[in-house]
Write a protein that binds this DNA or RNA. Structure first.
Lengths: 173, 173
DNA sequence: CTGTGTTTTCTGTTTATACTGAAACTACAG
DNA sequence: CTGTAGTTTCAGTATAAACAGAAAACACAG
């Protein structure tokens, strides 16, 4: 698979972005490549195109599949696995946020909950306790909000987005 | 400075969180410690409490100041710098999102813009071009929305949040 | 100008993670 | 069964980032 200049920069930049957000470069690059590719491609093609080890591609694809961002498909008359990425970017965004929430935010909130409990009997000063409480409260507000909003249909979300700041009209007071 | 059990877990967990989101552990730990502390503390106190090198604390504090999350203050009769963290968590969230947008999202969108231009004349196939365009479009929609909404007063944001999914009432169609 | 407390800079080391390549495994065709 | 194409696992290696400690720079009192 031959990459044009534009495709190459996109893939490289996406890899760079990934690493700044705690996603490893290979995974991000592969994801970008699959997103750009308009037909399913094999692991070997990815290996060649990106110049990374076959085993690394395998592991990364596995990870991408576990995120539901990439699916395995088959092509008639070809034994090899082919891979393709979700193309609806709204769906992609929601998947990523959902997963990171589940893997990182939710555990953080429960850790905080435990800390607030512990703080009751371990001699934590009152003012620190109130800071801890604020954090927990804040986390809970955000997650509750997200859980509701993320369940709205995409079309609604798009419309809400396009309203931008106008949405504030509907707030009382 | 003595940490209670609850404080210690919070600081450690925060550090862990940081590293999963591309913020180094020391910086995140120091931030947590300053957030919990109800009075400004010195770099040396941080060094002792967290058991990391003095130089590391210095660099991290500098970084935190550049993010506007921590400010330097002075205490009467003490030559040493003291540090304290922003305590309004809404403000903290907006600062973090703002900064990461500025440092990472905005450059990504302009890279995409450049790629879309390049793709015009470098032989990129039509269908790939349209994928690139979708990405750019999506990024622009999100950033435009964020720029508007983040400028609303915190009180309005809080109210919007508490409305949760009810906000969808106001969408036409 | 000198001495002391404080902060920053810099270089080498450590550590964590990504990555490779070979070997093991699997599924299937013949 | 056997051979082959394909995939995964695993142990070792490389790389990049975090970190420590020493040295330098700075600020100011006396």
């Amino acid at each position: 698979m031959e990459l044009t200049r534009a495709m190459e920069s996109t893939v490289l930049h996406w890899g760079e972005m990934g690493s700044r957000w705690g996603v490893n470069r290979s995974i991000a690059q592969i994801h970008a490549l699959l997103y750009l590719s308009t037909k399913p491609i094999t692991a070997d093609e990815i290996t060649e195109t990106l110049g990374i080890a076959r085993s690394n591609v395998s592991t990364s694809l596995r990870e991408l599949q576990s995120w539901n961002l990439v699916t395995l498909t088959h092509v008639m008359g070809d034994r090899r696995d082919h891979f393709e990425a979700k193309t609806d970017l709204w769906e992609v965004l929601l998947i990523i946020v959902d997963q990171r929430k589940k893997r990182e935010i939710d555990p953080t909130v429960s850790t905080l909950r435990k800390c607030v409990l512990d703080a009751g009997g371990d001699g934590t000063p009152e003012d620190v306790k109130s800071r801890l409480n604020d954090m927990l409260q804040f986390g809970e507000t955000l997650t509750t909000w997200y859980e509701q909003v993320s369940r709205l249909p995409t079309t609604t979300l798009v419309k809400l987005m396009h309203m931008g700041a106008k949405i504030s009209r509907f707030v009382k007071g």
